[in-house]
Amino acid sequence: MDKYSALPKQGVETPALARRISTLLYSKVKLRLTLLLAAPLTWLVLVYIAALLALLVTALYSVDSYTSQIQTQLTFKNVLKVLTGQVYQTVALRTLGIALLVTIVDTLIALPIAFYMAKIASPRLQRLLVIAVLMPLWASYLVKAYAWRSVLSNEGIMQWLLRPLGLDTPGYGITATIITLGYLWLPYVILPIYAGLERVPNSLLEASGDLGAKTSTTLRLVMLPMLVPAIIAGSIFSFSLTMGDYITVNIVGGANQMLGNLVATNVGNNLPLAAAIALIPVLIMFGYLTAVRKTGALENL
């Protein structure tokens, strides 16, 4: 309370000029708002939006095949090449497939554990479980991808665990990529679903039971519809993070490539082509976000 009782004195001691500025700002709401917004908006627009627009324009440039200089005449050559080229279609479909599978696997794993956390565990256990789920988020991305590299290696623990069952480790490849990406994004999928389950009132579930619904019916007809926005919110994370990833597939994916790899390999010698390829994940993400906007998922992020 001491802090606040010092206020009037502080006001009196303020020098006259500062006082006048303060009074001026107090009466001019627009000026105040402009001063608040000036620095952050300048930064975001100048650094980021300008860079994105420049990239968009670069996708319409081309590279002279002899001098490898960028030519600034606008052309749709690269965009067309990306849209019709066999390689790009294959890799784009593979990336999309991996993103879908990762999202489905993560959602299926997240649902039971989130349900247990939100509806069965005692408050104390619930707090501990939230920490346990959050903890790996703080461990470095590379560390986790690398951990799976050693788990899945031919001499690794997976082989050691599976050999007695007559099975082999999947080794490095698309399966390993899906496992690793699914592992990396799992906490991002669990948390929104857990938060969504917390918002489903227990009384509603009890009412459904009292009215004679079987547990499975309650889950399907009462719980699930209320959970859809949360599930989609989780899927936005796993989907978009997978669409842009190329490091994991380098570490555990063997020779397989995703869209990110094509971008990364072309940045050095053919930036316009790289920019055109990079537009694919951006367009897919925008499409996905507009498609799920109406479900209210964006408010659940």
Binding site: A54, L55, S240, L271, P281
Partner: peptide, 14 residues
């Protein structure tokens, strides 16, 4: 929200 690689090459180019 946009993939890191998009942000990365956009800033690299800028």
């Amino acid at each position: 929200a946009l993939p890191g690689i998009v942000t990365g090459i956009a800033l690299n180019n800028a």
